[in-house]
Amino acid sequence: MPTKAEKDKYSGTEIRDHEWDGIRELNTPLPKWWVYVFAATIIWSIGYFAFFPFLPGQGVGFFGKNQRIALSEDIAAAQAAQARFVDGIAAASYEEIQADAELFNFSITGGRAAFADNCAPCHGGGGAGRPGFPVLADDDWLWGGTVEEIAYSINHGIRNESPDSRFSEMPAFEGVLGDEEVDDIVAFVDSLSGLPHDADAAVRGATGYADNCASCHGDQGLGLRELGAPRLSDQIWLYSSNSEEIASQILRPKHGVMPAWQGRVNETTVKMLTLYVHSLGGGE
């Protein structure tokens, strides 16, 4: 140990005794005030911990509060501030809400937030949809686009265990129809919406379609909302307009499932979600 600290000859500052590759370091300690402030923050944190606990089971602090109580108080205050709108929406019919600009705006804003939390993972932000998950912003509805129909779909969902769930299942035609029959029906379906197709095959497929498909999808492919049977004569395809994909859907149909939201979110939220979805650009 050096008995006397070595000093830097230019600045007169003490040099620390370690060295790396010839590089040495001046001893320039933290300013005193900084160290005091640092110590003060540690002391403060101990007091804060005692006065305003945050650990689960730590109980309440000296002022009878902890961070959980403070949070629930803040939430209660926010709910109290929103009560006027929330109660108004709960009490009003859809027509009444739509006629009241204040309630309507609150519904759209609240619906947007609830949609982002609960619906966007499948339906996409703003109801943009994705393959297999319907676009909610377009003018085509599988089960209906009025506020009542939308509310029912949200409340009870589609093809789930709930007894009131919307339900329908297209039968699988694998083993029932031959490959050629399926190809002809695909050509006919293509012709309904003006997709490129083999005209002769489409003529052949018309019979197969009428026998097997028309009962649900309609003679002209207009679909049937009571059964959630998609319209085949438009340009909107839940899965794909690709011929192989259509054939695969006839042979081994895929069925989308949507959970029932009744009970998961409260009635007011369903109302706000309904109005929001209805406002996305396709509401009927």
């Binding site: 932000g125 703003g126 943009a128 377009d138 319209r231 909107i236």
Partner: peptide, 18 residues
């Protein structure tokens, strides 16, 4: 210009922007 969705395909095949 609405960004989500950027555009929407309608039943008749036309494209709608919001």
């Amino acid at each position: 210009h609405d960004r989500s969705p950027l555009f929407v395909k309608l039943s008749d095949g036309s494209i709608r922007n919001g």
